[in-house]
Design a protein around this nucleic acid. Structure first.
Lengths: 354, 354
DNA sequence: TTGTATGCGTTATCAA
DNA sequence: TTGATAACGCATACAA
């Protein structure tokens, strides 16, 4: 007596053999009817489709992945300090583009705890994902190997990492353009409200600023650095520090809109008026820049497009339609002049009509 | 002549057999040394560990999943209208808790495009995930089946869905408490700046408000509804509409902080003063509520904890340490009284010391 | 065009 | 305690 033949797998889900039996064809035909319908006679194709509907069949992802070597999963590596409003728009852009090709996104936040970094590296080596996008500006590493060593395609967004494709903005030029704008308004004493030491974006911007301030165009201009870390709170702390300065800069270039907003709130509470006493320039172009008081002059970054473009590069690479290589792609920011900047104190003539 | 035996798998990654050969043991011993070290003699255990290090072995996730039936992947279903600041904190909470148990999070944004909903449902049936968290308040459905039909454990956060465990806040009571607070400040004419029609959270709050305003405690009080959709922009539109009302309500209960902030910006630009002319009550307790002008009185929701708690319930269920069932868990919100609310116009006596 | 049969890499069962 | 081996469910090379 033969053992009873179950028509269902372990967990009760129908398998490809069940569909095959139901349709009266072989498993190979079912597989082909689903993957390459053109290779199957219309009549059988229809019978297979009917069986799939009747049984509610969905192919098992693990088996498919084990056999095919691809998971259609992309790992997105982040750091929590990525300011939420900026970060979430980039993520939306990534998700949007990935879904066009049927890919999904696994989120890996690096600084949740110590194990997390190992977890991320392991995932790169476990075959669970087809590629990765790094938003962090850093490369996860664990036990002597990095997430790049797995040999999967990796795209960096907003940071250039050796060995990855990168999608960047012209952030250095942007912050210099901001400084130039303020210089044009008569400002001579500048503060740079920085990102955390070691941060890629801070480094690029600080270096560009330093070059500008050392150049002939900026003779007589002065720049000092105030430490921050992109958060609203650090902007508020910087504001408190700013109030103690004497003489005080009249123009402040911030590394994020959140910092600018925190900064403004505190210096306003301290009796200063923006932009009469101090002009504040943000960075990112988050939505709240339009709703704080005064509305924030800022560098608008193409957040959604950064995500979309980065994901697209990765997908093209995975599809083999793009050359491998780590050429950079640079998206343009644009200055958005609102009401938090204006002429330097003592410069009588307003440069902008209200 | 025997065919040459490759010591590497297809993609160049070492397999468990390679480790076994290197350590001079069987694959079963390698597997046990990694999964249940206690069952392996220390000497062999050490030889296996050395081989793993030497080869850089990471177990293949697909094979493991195919054999074991579990992926340690959780699907998180969202809608884009989930306001970013609220949403991202809940997500952080989820990610934090999942990572404690070695789980990862796949993000599925439902309203990216039409295929996305099918994609989400398919994932539930494909065995690719062990469970799901629904932040959306809706259940993905496609081709006659819903994401719940897969039989995987599902937790809803901020919405009660039949067939799922739910983690909620006392949002109905909270908004009534907000109304009661404003009534105590002398307000009699109220507006409710709503969420989109059909939204779970809007329904709960609107119903609670309606009950309160129909009750004896609120006799003489009046409530009207202004449509919104949680976004800053819809708050701004509501503000424009509000300016045309005559008589105008003096107290506005908003369904999100974003709406409250957009609303304030527009009515202030229209010449009203907050809270002198109109008191504005937000909802959520996002960070920017502390930085707008004036600072926003709001209902503070435990965003991070909502995510953490929801994920924990799911994990306990997956670990078998929690009973199945769909009991609700309700977290408490708290009122955060700041500067966007105050006495009703004409009520001379200030209720709060400045 | 369709069917048969093998292998993907792992874990669990069973026997030693 | 350890080793040999049989699934897990699918896709493809090959044969028909």
């Amino acid at each position: 007596m033969t053992p009873p033949q179950p028509t269902r797998g372990r967990d009760g889900a129908p398998r490809i053999v069940d569909v095959a039996r139901h349709a009266g064809v072989s498993t190979a035909t079912v597989s082909r009817a689903l993957a390459t319908p053109g290779q199957v006679r219309p009549e059988l194709r229809e019978r297979v489709a009917a069986a799939v509907r009747a049984l509610g069949y969905t192919p098992n992802a693990a088996a498919r992945q084990l056999r095919g070597g691809r998971s259609r999963m992309i790992l997105v590596v982040t750091l929590k300090r990525w300011s939420a409003p900026f970060f979430s728009e980039v993520l939306r852009g990534i998700d949007h583009e990935l879904s066009l090709d049927g890919y999904s996104m696994i989120l890996g936040n690096l600084d949740l705890d110590r194990d997390r970094e190992r977890h991320v590296v392991d995932m790169m080596f476990s075959g669970h994902i087809d590629g990765a996008i790094a938003l962090s500006g850093i490369v996860a590493r664990s036990e002597g190997r990095t997430m790049l060593d797995a040999g999967l395609p990796v795209v960096s967004i907003c940071s250039a990492t050796a060995g990855t494709m990168a999608v960047l903005t012209d952030e250095g030029e942007s912050i210099v353009a901001a400084a130039r704008h303020l210089a044009g308004e008569g400002h001579r004493d500048f503060a740079y409200l920085s990102g955390p030491a070691g941060n890629y974006n801070d480094a690029v911007r600080a270096e560009a600023l330093a070059a500008f301030f050392a150049g002939p165009e900026a003779s007589g201009l002065r720049l000092r650095r105030i430490e921050g870390d992109f958060t609203t709170q650090s902007g508020a702390q910087a504001g408190a520090h700013f109030l103690t300065l004497d003489p005080r800069p009249t123009a402040v270039l911030c590394c994020s809109d959140e910092m600018a907003i925190g900064f403004m709130k505190v210096v306003q509470a301290g009796g200063l008026e923006v932009p009469r006493d101090v002009s504040v320039f943000g960075f990112d172009g988050i939505e709240f820049a339009d709703y704080c008081e005064p509305t924030l002059t800022t560098v608008r970054q193409p957040r959604f497009d950064l995500g979309r473009t980065g994901a697209r590069r990765l997908l093209d690479r995975l599809a083999g339609t793009a050359p491998s290589g780590d050429a950079h792609l640079i998206l343009r920011n644009e200055l958005s002049i609102r009401n938090s900047t204006g002429p330097a104190p003592g410069v009588g003539r307003a440069r902008r009509t209200a």
